[in-house]
């Protein structure tokens, strides 16, 4: 991507030690750093007070960060937002966030697997998904709700599919977000029902920083996944989602679930 900014002369194979100025800030962030740094510097100069001096210093360091594409703080924290250029499938190692959840559902393994295998069912149980459209046997188009009211789109392919055992998928090059996930199914050691292990990796545009901000805003994917799976389990085991409401929400529509939800009360 041509941005007109100074490009790092270091190749990616060189380690950070050999090349202290390797780019570790994404280009979009560099532009923001330049703009923010410039205005801080100007404001600081105009004030001239002690606080003004601090502004000058902060502005200068942001300008440096934007110009060189290298951030010492990121280096210290092991963060690199520049690497993700979304040219590879899935999520690169040491990048993104991983969420993980394990649960027992008192239903037959095959029927839970079949529900998951029809990926178009997933938005019914995952609140962060807006839609999944199956393109062919392997590929599908995903739309997710993202922080700040935005949506993210990606194309994913199923990379592993062992009926009744595991489904794994990853995003394809050219996606707005790098993501990969898997669900493992096995018969419960309790003798009834199924044990599920769900793992999802994702690396949103903006990398770690965006994830942290979303976390601060209460949009924590781990909490959301736990709640989604809890409700999925409730639908399958109890036939409904537990609520403490004393009246139906105005305009409440019963969640459409393409699944036989007859509860076994025996």
């Amino acid at each position: 991507m041509k941005t007109g900014l100074m490009n790092s002369t270091c190749s990616s194979s060189q380690s950070a030690k050999q090349c202290p100025l390797s780019q570790n800030v994404a280009n979009s962030e560099r532009v923001l750093s330049l703009l923010g740094g410039g205005s801080l510097l100007l404001m600081g100069l105009r004030r001239g007070s002690g606080a003004g001096l601090l502004g000058v210093a902060a502005g200068a360091s942001l300008l440096y960060r934007g110009w060189t594409g290298h951030c010492h703080l990121y280096e210290g924290l092991g963060i690199n937002t520049a690497e993700s250029q979304r040219t590879r499938p899935g999520v690169a190692s040491h990048q993104g966030s991983k969420v993980h959840s394990a649960l027992h559902i008192n239903r037959d393994r095959q029927e839970i697997y079949e529900f998951w295998r029809n990926l178009e069912n997933l938005p019914q149980i995952m609140q962060h998904l807006e839609s999944v459209t199956v393109i062919d046997e392997k590929r599908s188009e995903w739309v997710a709700r993202a922080p700040f009211g935005k949506t993210l789109q990606w194309e994913a392919e199923i990379i592993t599919d062992k009926p009744g055992e595991v489904i794994a998928w990853q995003s394809l090059p050219g996606s707005q977000v790098d993501t990969a996930g898997s669900v493992h199914f096995k018969d419960s050691s309790t003798g009834a029902g199924t044990e599920l292990v769900v793992s999802i990796m994702y690396n949103p545009p903006g990398g770690q920083i965006v994830t942290q901000i979303a976390h601060l805003l209460g949009q924590d994917l781990q909490t959301e996944l736990n709640q989604d799976l809890r409700e999925f389990k409730q639908l399958l085991e109890a036939g409904e989602i537990a609520t403490n409401a004393i009246a139906p929400e105005p305009g409440q529509i019963q969640k459409p679930v393409m699944f036989d939800l007859k509860v076994d009360k025996s």
Partner: peptide
């Protein structure tokens, strides 16, 4: 106590 009747624990 409120119980669903369908989960591992109720069973």
């Amino acid at each position: 106590t409120i119980a669903c009747g369908g989960c591992y624990f109720c069973k």
